[in-house]
């Protein structure tokens, strides 16, 4: 997790939302990734997907079933689904993501059939192959980095239609984190 935090710091220095991750297989880091949405102009280049791309240049997808992810912020709904689709074994994350989290923050994409919301309303059918998640590891370090970033301000984002103010909130996550 400390490696992931270091990578998050490097993202911060490149004006990216400071989220970093490492994928660990047999106690070895096989890939790292950091958020890359601002540079790439692509809203899907989250740390997890960047690292998955790297892994697949060297290893077949089957490696994921023996691979664990360490990521500084709870994977978003998109990444949580991606991790499920590649068949990740376990996910360890730092702070939770109550705006976009797909591992309990907003939805629980990782468990059951992946359709549950936070209040446990379970609907729909189908789906197999969830994964275990463990949150809250070095959580405050991850949050501090996000705060630093939002002091810098993400100037590229257009004003969303239903945005509430841009002040920093004191709870778990800063506002306007839409690139986690």
């Amino acid at each position: 997790m400390q490696s992931a935090l270091q990578i998050a710091t490097s993202a911060l220095q490149s004006n990216e939302v400071p989220v970093g991750c490492v994928f660990v297989h047999d106690s070895r880091i096989i890939a790292s990734g950091r958020n890359d949405t601002n540079r790439s102009l692509c809203g899907t280049r989250h740390a997890e997907l960047v690292a998955i791309d790297k892994i697949l240049t060297t290893y077949p997808p089957s490696i994921f079933k023996e691979t664990d992810l360490y990521v500084t912020v709870e994977p978003c709904i998109m990444c949580a689904s991606a991790l499920r689709q590649v068949g990740i074994r376990k996910v360890y994350f730092g702070c939770s993501n109550d705006r976009f989290g797909g591992c309990g923050g907003v939805l629980k994409v990782h468990e059951g059939d992946g359709t549950m919301d936070v209040s446990g309303n379970k609907i729909g059918a189908g789906g197999t192959g969830g994964y275990e998640v463990f949150g809250g590891i070095y959580s405050s370090s991850a949050v501090v980095k996000l705060r630093e970033f939002y002091v810098q301000e993400n100037g590229r984002a257009p004003v969303a239609t239903s945005k509430k103010g841009r002040e920093l909130k004191t709870d778990n996550l800063p506002v306007d984190v839409d690139v986690l």
């Binding site: 692509c42 809203g43 709904i77 689904s81 969303a160």
Partner: peptide, 12 residues
């Protein structure tokens, strides 16, 4: 799917 739907949201 969930991933692509959320990707469309992230992409606004």
């Amino acid at each position: 799917c969930v991933m692509c739907s959320m990707a469309l949201l992230h992409s606004r």
